[in-house]
Amino acid sequence: MEIRWLKQTASPEAIVVFGGWAVGPEVFDHLAGDQDILFVSDYRDLAADLPDLSGYEKVSLLAWSFGVAAYGHWQRARADLFQRRIAVNGSLTPVDREAGIPPVVMQKTIETLSAASYQRFITRVFGAGQPEAVIDIAARQEELRAVAARGAAPDPGFDHVWISEKDKIFPAANLKRAWAGHRITSLAAPHMPFAGFSSWQELLA
Rank of each mutant, 00 (worst) to 15 (best):
M1F: 00
E2N: 09
I3F: 01
R4K: 05
L6P: 13
L6H: 05
K7N: 02
A10Y: 01
S11M: 13
P12M: 05
V16Q: 07
V17D: 11
F18W: 11
W21F: 09
A22F: 10
A22M: 07
V23F: 15
V23C: 13
F28T: 02
L38G: 06
V40R: 04
D42R: 11
Y43M: 03
L53I: 13
S54Q: 09
G55F: 00
L61W: 03
L61I: 10
L62C: 01
F66Y: 08
V68D: 08
A69D: 01
A70P: 06
A70V: 09
Y71G: 12
Y71N: 12
Y71M: 04
Q75K: 14
A77I: 04
L81E: 03
Q83K: 14
Q83M: 15
Q83E: 10
Q83N: 09
R84V: 01
R85K: 15
G90N: 00
G90R: 03
S91Q: 02
V95N: 03
R97C: 15
R97H: 09
E98N: 15
I101Q: 01
I101Y: 14
I101D: 08
P102L: 01
P102V: 00
P103N: 01
M106C: 10
T109D: 06
I110W: 13
T112H: 05
T112R: 11
S114I: 00
S114C: 05
R120I: 08
F121K: 06
T123W: 07
R124E: 04
V125R: 06
F126I: 09
A128T: 12
P131K: 15
P131I: 12
A133W: 02
V134S: 07
I135G: 08
D136E: 10
D136P: 14
A139E: 10
R140A: 12
Q141E: 08
E142P: 15
A146D: 15
A148K: 15
A152K: 12
P154K: 04
P154H: 09
D155I: 08
G157R: 10
K168S: 10
P171D: 08
A172R: 14
A173Y: 11
K176L: 13
K176C: 05
R177C: 14
R177A: 08
R183F: 15
P190T: 07
H191C: 05
P193E: 02
F194M: 11
G196I: 03
F197L: 02
E202V: 06
L204N: 03
